[in-house]
């Protein structure tokens, strides 16, 4: 079995996001970039499946600027066997990303695709579902547990009402939630080894997929700030402040 994992390069989750004063975007210059945390969990899951002997190869794919090589190298250091970078200068919307992924799935003959349920930059939560639709295969989104047996996957999903279990036939697309696993740390020797692993680069234009954006982003704004609150120094003062606001009626 071959597993494809998608790794998006995003602003690290610890960075405080600032909108540029001219509203043209968020500040990314000199800001730490990382693998989208959900995608890192996807890669960890794929590696565990391979380490159990249920898969032969884990391929890491990233779509974006040349700099995505850094995240792919990290993915290779974690244990991916090889990497593919599809270079794109302009932002790639989820539908376009799904089309690119499908091209590579068809080329590689992939049996399982694992990716994050959302990227922490655009928070879209779309790509896995769109890929499954275009591929005409099952989707198991928001996975917190994944078991493979007899060409099927049993997936526990984190849904609003609790935990939902579904059972899907492979090939399938799985999107990860945070509690699926805890990704491993990369060790220095692995970083050295990763430098020798294959990283193939393709230009998005050469894949002949439609990447026309569906919407245009007009402006970026900081969110409205909440009015400054008060600090109280006793439970009595807390209760009376809550009563004043009519919250205990």
């Amino acid at each position: 079995m071959k597993i494809l994992v998608c790794l998006k390069r995003v602003v690290d989750y610890n960075v405080r996001i600032r909108v540029k004063p001219d509203g043209s975007g968020v500040v990314t210059d000199g800001v730490k970039m990382s693998i989208n945390p959900f995608d890192e969990i996807a890669l960890e899951e794929a590696l565990r499946i391979r380490e159990r002997g249920d898969a032969e190869e884990v391929i890491a794919l990233s779509i974006g600027p040349e700099d995505c090589q850094q995240q792919l190298r990290t993915g290779l250091a974690m244990g991916a066997d090889r990497a593919i970078l599809v270079t794109a200068e302009a932002a790639v919307e989820p539908l376009a990303a799904a089309r690119v992924m499908l091209k590579l799935i068809e080329r590689e003959g992939t049996d399982l695709v694992i990716l994050g349920k959302q990227a922490i930059d655009d928070d879209c939560n779309q790509t896995g579902q769109m890929l499954a639709a275009l591929w005409n295969r099952p989707q198991a989104t928001f996975a917190s547990k994944l078991e493979l047996a007899d060409g099927r996957a049993t997936v526990t999903r984190e849904v609003d009402a609790g935990l939902e279990v579904i059972d899907v036939e492979l090939p399938a697309v799985i999107t990860t939630d945070l509690r699926l696993n805890e990704p491993r740390y990369v060790k220095l020797p692995d970083i050295m080894k990763a430098k020798k692993k294959p990283l193939e680069t393709l230009a998005i234009a050469d894949l002949q997929v439609d990447v026309t954006p569906g919407v245009q982003v007009e402006t970026y704004e900081p969110p409205p700030t909440r009015a400054k609150g008060i600090m109280v120094d006793s439970v009595e003062a807390l209760v009376s402040a809550m009563r004043d606001k009519g919250l205990l009626g």
Partner: peptide, 21 residues
């Protein structure tokens, strides 16, 4: 909701269009 997030993008892609989340 988790239901809408699961279904809508799949339907949008089948219709050949993107989605605004």
């Amino acid at each position: 909701t988790t239901f809408g997030k699961d279904v809508l993008p799949r339907a949008a892609a089948l219709a050949g269009v993107g989605q605004i989340s």
